[in-house]
């Protein structure tokens, strides 16, 4: 099965990295999180309630809505902070990407581990830019707010196509579909991964060196 895949590309200031990714991932998770399932007896269950929280951004003109679960928020923030650190505090990379992947597990025979099959992947590619003055920052702040607003509309459009999501499982298979580690809500199984790339400004030098090395190796 091929996973659906969407990519967002943005140029942002270093301090905007976290909020850009948070606003997008939380908007996605809002749609991909259900209330907690409680199985009453074989085959029947009740669903809990999902709370709603408005979050204002500090460095972008944007308010986004997230699921009212502090633990889920914390888990997402932790992953995004690690992405931000790798982008901001290393000398090299000034661009990178972070992905939110929804997957389901398929049990495998012992001793193999369960197979993870992604069904939807959302990727945010970021270029980190430096701005010269406060005026440019203000423009950027508004511009990124507008761009993210468009993305929120786009997410709504995709979510309302009602394409494939894993079927509601029996109790024994609940943790093959959902992340059951949260006490208050139940998102579909997800994982966040990120990578960074070398800055484009030095890529010419690097590729030249590589070219020379390759030539010598011949």
């Amino acid at each position: 099965m091929n996973a659906r895949s969407q990519v967002f590309e943005l140029s942002v200031e270093g301090r905007q990295i976290e909020e850009v990714v948070q606003s997008l991932f939380h908007t996605l998770l809002l749609h991909r999180t259900l209330g907690k399932f409680h199985y009453k007896q074989e085959g029947s269950y009740s669903i809990g309630t999902v709370g709603i929280v408005d979050e204002d951004c500090d460095f972008i003109d944007l308010t986004y809505v997230r699921v009212g679960s502090d633990n889920l928020d914390l888990a997402i923030r932790r992953e995004i902070a690690s992405f931000r650190d790798s982008l901001r505090f290393n000398d090299g990379p000034r661009s990178g990407q972070i992905s939110l992947e929804f997957y389901q597990k398929k049990r495998a025979r012992w001793p193999f581990q369960a197979e993870c099959i992604p069904w939807e992947v959302w990727t945010v590619k970021l270029d980190v830019i430096n701005l010269a003055n406060e005026h440019e920052r203000q423009v950027c702040r508004e511009k990124i707010g507008e761009l993210l607003s468009e993305k929120v509309l786009f997410v709504a459009e995709i979510m309302n196509r009602h394409e494939y999501v894993p079927k509601t499982p029996n109790q024994s298979e609940l943790d093959l579909i959902f992340d059951t580690s949260f006490l208050d809500v139940q998102p579909y199984l997800y994982r966040i991964s990120h990578s960074t790339t070398e800055p484009s400004s030095t890529s010419v030098g690097i590729s030249m060196r590589k070219f020379l090395k390759d030539t010598l190796a011949l």
């Binding site: 259900l34 209330g35 907690k36 409680h38 009740s46 669903i47 809990g48 309630t49 999902v50 709370g51 709603i52 929280v53 408005d54 204002d56 308010t63 809505v65 699921v67 009212g68 679960s69 006490l183 208050d184 809500v185």
Partner: peptide
Amino acid sequence: EKIKTKSKPVSSGADWFNLAI
């Protein structure tokens, strides 16, 4: 004003569409 509602593991039964509104 900002909206803030809590998630409830067990619904009160009045939360339509499993959303705290």
